Amino acid sequence: MDGNGRWATQRGRPRLFGHHAGAKRVREVVQSCPDVGVDYLTIFAFSTENWKRTQVEVAGLMSLFRRYITKEARALDQFGARVRFIGDRMRLDAKLIKLMDDLEDMTSSNTAVNLTIALNYGGRDEVARATKRLARDVAQGRLSPDDVDEETLPKYLDTYVLPDPDLVIRTSGEARISNFLLWQSAYAEYEFIDTLWPDFTAEEFASLCASYGGRDRRFGAVKT
């Protein structure tokens, strides 16, 4: 969900103004998922690298996350969204973690759409944490080194209960993946679009999903 800061700057407003505008856009996209056949949606809210931003912006974002969860929890539950969070929670404050836990519990039986929020998430960090857990199981004799393969590691990732993404959309005109779902996106289709996230509509989302539906996915094979 990139481009919030630039969107605000273009309007002569502080960057946090753009983040608030971007947060409002999330509900529209989430609620459009059933209509376009999307069962799983993952949004990248805050990366492990985002701590490098100014203290004012980081503090504002953390406040926004707390307010967003508090404000949207009931609406997400009533809509039928099952919410999960991925990322390293250790650096987040206790109040935010409690809100995240409560929202996951509240929506655990919902089935309309699976919404995953990546918060303090980084693909490399996730793989490093997964590898550490895997190595611990090997060291303690719960897993044989000979059994470690590309089917084993995903069981230790934050996304172990989720399917790999089919389509990754990057807004704001940047043509890079920025440490997002590195392992899981090995064969994902990509869309890099110029739209800044606060301007991203459900209609554009539907159009991109329709375009994806016409792609020929071979996963490295050749059709005969």
Rank of each mutant, 00 (worst) to 15 (best):
Y121P: 02
W7D: 05
Y160K: 15
R218Q: 10
R82H: 04
Y190N: 01
V56C: 03
D216G: 02
Y156P: 03
I117E: 02
R67Y: 05
V36R: 10
A75W: 10
E189V: 08
D2M: 06
R142V: 09
A8Y: 09
T42V: 06
W183L: 07
R136H: 12
N4H: 12
G37I: 15
M1Q: 12
T152P: 00
R13A: 15
Y187S: 03
H19Y: 14
P14G: 06
A186M: 05
L182Q: 03
D39L: 15
D125N: 11
L41S: 10
Y212S: 05
D102S: 07
V222Q: 09
P154V: 11
A188K: 01
T224W: 04
T48Q: 03
F192R: 11
E72F: 07
S178W: 04
E191A: 15
N120W: 08
V161N: 13
R89I: 07
E126V: 08
V30C: 02
G22N: 05
Q140W: 12
F17C: 12
E57T: 12
P198C: 12
C209N: 15
V138H: 08
V113E: 01
V38A: 11
A112E: 12
D105C: 08
G12Q: 05
D194I: 07
N120Q: 07
C33Y: 09
A59N: 15
Y190R: 09
V29K: 00
S47D: 01
L76P: 01
L115C: 02
I69K: 00
E151N: 14
R124N: 10
R129Q: 05
A139Q: 15
Y68M: 00
L134I: 12
L182Y: 02
T48V: 09
V148K: 04
D149E: 05
K71M: 06
T111E: 06
M90P: 00
G141N: 13
D39I: 12
D199M: 08
D88G: 02
R84M: 05
S207P: 00
H20I: 14
A112F: 00
R91S: 13
V222E: 09
T42R: 01
